[in-house]
Nucleic acid binder design. Sequence first.
DNA 1: CTGAAAGCGCTTACAG
DNA 2: CTGAAAGCGCTTACAG
Lengths: 355, 355
Amino acid sequence: MSDDSDAEPQRSVPTRRRSPGGAPTIYDIAELTGVNPSTVSRALGKPGRVSAKTEAKIRAAAAQLNFRVNPMARALPTGRTHTLALIVADITNPLFFRLVRGAELAATGAGYALVIAESQESGDAEADVIEQIMPSVDGIVLATTRLSPERIAEIASRKPLVVVNREVVGVTAVVPGVERGTQALVSHLYEMGHRSIAYLSGPVTSWMSERRWTIILEAAEALGIAAVEIGPASPTLSGGREALRRVIASRATAVVAFNDLMAMGLMQAAAEAAVVVPDELSVAGFDDIFGSELISPALTTVRAPLVEMGQRAVVGVLAAVSSEDDAVSEDMPALTTELIVRGSTGHAPGGPFSS
Amino acid sequence: MSDDSDAEPQRSVPTRRRSPGGAPTIYDIAELTGVNPSTVSRALGKPGRVSAKTEAKIRAAAAQLNFRVNPMARALPTGRTHTLALIVADITNPLFFRLVRGAELAATGAGYALVIAESQESGDAEADVIEQIMPSVDGIVLATTRLSPERIAEIASRKPLVVVNREVVGVTAVVPGVERGTQALVSHLYEMGHRSIAYLSGPVTSWMSERRWTIILEAAEALGIAAVEIGPASPTLSGGREALRRVIASRATAVVAFNDLMAMGLMQAAAEAAVVVPDELSVAGFDDIFGSELISPALTTVRAPLVEMGQRAVVGVLAAVSSEDDAVSEDMPALTTELIVRGSTGHAPGGPFSS
DNA sequence: CTGAAAGCGCTTACAG
DNA sequence: CTGAAAGCGCTTACAG
């Protein structure tokens, strides 16, 4: 009686998909193994919640079907997307490469995907980008400079957030100790005979630029030498280039730029203006980005542990994500900075060692 | 009778959330405006499907509640995540900065998020990463070198995919025309008196490395000069450094590296070995990455339009995503490469112009 | 240990 | 133009 036109309506078995998207679901596995979908879910989730035998069957079926849990479907009931956002100001700034790599490593290692978004050095864009990405992620690493502390605190109240290279009250921060490297830099310049140092600052909104200047100022005061702040300027090659004139006018014999990019711009402009580095002007930067070693003379810089900073920022976010506890206590050893002396700094002109 | 212990059980009104996550939902808007949630969904989706009046009310309420559609929830019924993946081999290779920026621009401009994943120059990792990210994205841009054409074609059969800097039958590719810049480079070297050129190749699996070598070989043959391939080598600074010995041994007077990073490594090693560039050895690379201009002497290179390539790759994926049509026809003007002559190439030693 | 049910927040035929 | 319902693929109390 295999008659298709049987009067009796076929019992409507709720044949769950084999979805058009093609991807197998837990229903396929359930069908294949003869268990309930919820059992499949349990077996594939935390182990030990299902008999070893059933679990083995289910895992085998999952493997056979090449099953992957649908992250979207999982995110809905759990509220967990297993995705983190890293917001940077400018993707093309080499500073971010190592930071991104560190964050990537830590995120991937924990089974999280990392969405990288760029705020294009604009405060409004920054806020928009964050607002837009927020619902898709479990937490955020913020490595930008334009947002106000109030906005940041507000975002932190909504999602786990870690800021990099700045401090905001009540928000977890990953900031290397700048003192060590920076003081070493000023001492180094002092020993080379410099008695007047210019600091070329970055964006006004940059907490880190402010911080670096403060330390330079204090170190200069302690040594009894002159220090002057020039800027603010764009934290880019051109920001550095455009500042050369003011640096020269300051009569400082050494200039420390907010970052390596600016320092390099300064050196390029100096070369074009036939100002010899370091004989006539010593130049130093911060971060030790790719290229610092390549430029000629190679750039003296205060190196930051960027890869580790990226990793740590992600670890911090993840800790907040899982503990759901707002109180994120940090017990990790302090991150610090280190002076790398290269050819761009030398004896002060007119001093006892000058040629 | 406001007695809590009222015997009559309270009618369980299905009070829809005001979710713990805090984010407002379309149910909140529906409640606030007195319409059905489905109407809210329609009003906020494609316009014109709801009366202007209702839509206005709904939009006002949405704005008031600061509503953002939950991308996960939307992805489930639609299958669209509004997220794209960009897979790169090595995030710290400056080559990718401009590519990433272009991709970012195009994606963000289209309302898509971009997930960046790194495959760490390993074929297995590459496959894993892709497999893992697949369910979360609507399409993929692949800028890696390790995957076999078969694997790539297989992936392309499952999701919209665009490959960058390589060609795979049946898969949309964004590849700049290498001929122009490369031929110009060989001509330039020829005119400088070079009669023997070495090509330092990248990974064996690199389609683009092969392609560049082919063109150099053909150009050299056409000019009647010698060309030799050295390698394969790692597409990194150290890959370049380690190859110097073999380059010298080849007696070629000019070396063209697979990419700028390798060319720079070669120059660093040359400097350490007191081999003067370009007087004793001319060096050139590909891509014109950040740093090429900074190294001394500055690097002669064949520049690729990386930002535009990134944009175009995303546009290509998006086209496939929306047309759902496998036949992606490309009508865009060809992308091309351009020779940038800088200081690292000069007259061949021993030639009529040599010092 | 396992099944049945409800729900995550949205979309989309299906009626009207 | 709008409402009611079903469903996307998963998770997780609730029973047993």
